[in-house]
Structures are given as structure tokens and as C-alpha cells.
Design a protein around this nucleic acid. Structure first.
Lengths: 229, 229
DNA sequence: TCTAAAACATGATAATTGTCAGTTTTTACA
DNA sequence: TGTAAAAACTGACAATTATCATGTTTTAGA
């Protein structure tokens, strides 16, 4: 037997908390659980989704391929987030691809169930709206950073963001391990440029590395760097 | 006597079309109309809004100041759009400033009225949600463009976007006239760099200028340029 | 209509970032 | 566990874009 949404803590972190008992039962009865392996895709840009994903565990990247073939990571999802909402609500193709960055456990909820609740429960709509408002604000911030900050500043910011959002292990390394390529695709730079910058940060003693793992050594200096001194 | 929302065509273009008669009456009774002069602000980043603006006429820019003091324009609003929704829904400070780019006529609707309808009319919430989903998608596209395209590509794209969205006059100039500074703040570049690029485009016969006015001469070539050949 | 301020424009130069070419290290898996 | 592929890294160089300095044109308003 699978988990029941009624008993799932994750729900408290997303818009599903606005559901009443009957709605929750409907969701729980219709949902399916999936395990996604690191590197596998949840969905791909341009696809039509017939439901949303509720992330129980693991991290994924939302990215978009630009015409020159380079990937841009727009957002990393956290535990508890719902993915694919935008596409289901707008009845539109996904504009982003979602790929697991670590092994994931997700629940898939069919769109009919979601649409149905959206049409009848204004509190749920409002909750979804609040989350989307938050995403929109963050997207605006990213736009400003992309155009006004240097790659160096954006990288410094990324390290701090990752530390704050995913924590660090007992040795002071950021828990979420990303490839250099992923880092490049987050800050929007060539991989070689990014690798060089990591070397530079390391040489200056701002960060430490061990294989792919990266640890923040001087958070204050890094923050100052991100803010442009 | 002011205009009544019941008779306002603008409504059809935004989420207010989901309102029923009573709701519409409430909105109409509580709204106030305002004229905003070109260059004046509707609201400023960090402010708390106690309502939303419905744009009857005119164009405004939504922008954000970055830490280095440069402005980044995140979005231009069109006729019919509702502004300030995000802030009212999230009960948050505005993250953007709104400034009139042309003379504007707007209606201000107090947030209590909006919140009230959001809480009771799921169709309205859903409409707002759809609009916000659309904005979010556009924001994602801007992020990708900002990080993957060159200034030249972004500028070419901006010209085409402006032509398609605001049309052109009888002489083939884009109807919406922006300052070079505004153009720079849209594509995220230094004003000098942008001016140079306009000169270059003009020299190549892609565009024509007359004072501030800019007209597209070779749309196809411009489009190819935007796509990276 | 005169005048100061703002916007526009251009050149020279420097800083940032990307590209290409190649080497070394790590990883996956047959 | 050996090996091919992928990822990480480095150097040299080129392209893009920003900055500073300065001159010209346009605009707003006294």
C-alpha cells in the first residue's frame, strides 16, 4: 500500500494544505508515487502535462534550452514544491524541462483532479496563486541579477543561496552537489569561465572544494562580493 | 460621473471578466479613476499597495533598481492589464516600480474588494491565476534570453516585440516611443553600448530613426539576428 | 525665445566573458 | 577491475560589453 496524502507532512508546505478532507481523499486515491533517478527527466520542455508532481524528496532543476543549444537553469525545486502547475493551469505545453539532480520521490496527481478542485475551492486557488506570486517575484529578481550582475557576483550569490536552502554536511560542504556544468547553467556562463572562477574563489580562500563538493569558507566576503563590495 | 466598469470594454481583456453583476457593481462603486502623466510613477518598489490598477489607456514600465543603481525593466504593461496583483495577493511589498511611459488612464480598485472576490469566486481566482501563469512563463523566457543571448540579439528581439505589441504609425515607426535609456534598461546594457548598436543597425539598413522614433526596415533580417542567424 | 539641463552620440580603452584546443582526472559499467 | 566516456581543468586568444571622457543635439521651461 502506498502512502496516503492525508498523513503526508509535505502537504503542509504547499498549496494542498488548503484542501478539505474529501478533496484530499480524491487526490490520494488518484495519485501515483514515482521514484526518479538522478539525471532522469520528470518532464521535457514542450510536452503537455496531464498532471502535477508533488515533491516528497530530492531536488530537481527546471531548465530551458536556448536556441544556441545551451541550457539555462531557471529554478531549483525544493522538497514540498508542486511542479507543473503553470502548465496545467494555463492548459499549455510546459515551457521548462524538469530533471532530477538527486534521486527523487514524487507523487503524480492527474490534472482533472487538480482542475476540479481549482474550480470549486477558492481557498485552494488562492493558495496556488500565492505560491505562483512568490515564484514570479523570484523570477523578476533573477532577471535583474542576470542583467545587472557579473558572473562572479552571480556565482557568489549562488553559493550562498545553495547553502541557505540545502544546508551543509558535517564537513562544511554544501549538501546539494552540482556539476560544474550545472553551476554554469545556473549563473548563465560558459562552463570554462565558471571553472576558472571556482579556482579563483578557492585560491582566494573564499571556498573549499573536494571533488564536486564545494564548501563556503568566508561567507561574509562572498556576500560582499555578491553585492558588489 | 465616472465611467462604470459594467460598460468598460477593457474588462474583457483581463481577469475582471470573471466577475458577476454584483461583484462588478462593487468594483465599480469602489474604484477611482486616475490620470498619470508620462514619467510619473504609479507605485514604487518596496511600497505597500492598497489596491490594484486596471490600465484603461497608456503604457507603463515595471522596473527594479539593482544594487549598482542601474534600472532594469522587467516588463512593459499593455492596455487592459491589471497591475499590482502580485503584491496584493501575496500581501507583500511591491518588488517592482511602475512608471508611466506615456500618459495613462487607470482605475484604482481597493484591495479589500479584490480580496473579497478572490475568497468567494473561484472563477475569478482561476482567471487571475491564468494571467499570472502567463506572466511567469514570460519571465522565464526573459531569464533565458538575458543569459543566453547577446545584447545585439536582445535588442533585435525588443524591436520586433515592440512593433508586434504596440504597432507602428503611418510612416512605419514603432508607435511606442522609448528613450535610449529605456531601451538600454530593457535589454540590460549600458546606454552607450545600446546607442552604438542602434547606430550599427541603422547603418546596416535594418532600422530607421527619426529623433527618438525607431522604425523597422528589414524585419526578417532582424528576426534572424535575434535568433542568432 | 533663450538657456540650462537632459538626452543623444562617438572615440579610446579596459574589463569581462566566451571560444577553441588540449590535458588530466573521475566515473560508469562491460 | 580495466577501459572508454564524461567531467574537470588550463592556456591562449578573440569577441563582447562597460567605462570614461567629451562633444553635439534636443527639450523643457523661465
Amino acid at each position: 500500500m502506498e502512502h496516503r496524502c492525508e498523513n503526508c507532512i509535505i502537504r503542509q508546505f504547499n498549496s494542498l494544505r488548503a484542501l478539505n478532507k474529501e478533496e484530499l481523499k480524491k487526490v490520494s486515491d488518484s495519485k501515483t508515487s514515482k521514484r526518479i533517478k538522478k539525471g532522469d527527466a520528470l518532464f521535457i520542455e514542450g510536452q503537455k502535462l496531464d498532471g502535477v508532481f508533488c515533491v516528497r524528496n530530492g531536488v530537481s532543476k527546471l531548465s530551458k534550452l536556448s536556441s544556441n543549444g545551451k541550457e539555462q537553469i531557471v529554478k531549483l525545486t525544493n522538497r514540498g514544491e508542486i511542479m507543473g502547475q503553470r502548465s496545467v493551469i494555463a492548459e499549455d505545453f510546459t515551457n521548462l524541462s524538469a530533471t532530477a539532480i538527486s534521486d527523487m520521490e514524487v507523487c503524480f496527481i492527474p490534472k482533472e483532479v487538480i482542475s476540479n478542485i481549482l474550480n470549486t475551492n477558492p481557498y485552494f486557488s488562492l493558495e496556488v496563486l500565492r505560491h505562483m506570486a512568490h515564484d514570479l517575484k523570484e523570477a523578476d529578481d533573477v532577471i535583474v541579477n542576470m542583467s545587472q550582475k557579473t558572473v562572479k557576483q552571480r556565482l557568489a550569490e549562488a553559493f550562498i543561496y545553495l547553502k541557505n536552502n540545502y544546508g551543509e554536511d558535517e564537513n562544511g560542504f554544501i549538501s546539494l552537489t552540482l556539476s560544474r556544468d550545472d553551476y554554469a547553467n545556473i549563473v548563465g556562463a560558459a562552463t570554462e569561465s565558471l571553472i576558472r572562477m571556482i579556482s579563483e574563489f578557492k585560491k582566494k580562500g573564499l571556498i573549499k572544494t573536494e571533488g564536486k563538493k564545494i564548501g563556503i569558507v568566508q561567507e561574509c566576503t562572498l556576500q560582499e562580493l555578491a553585492d558588489g563590495f
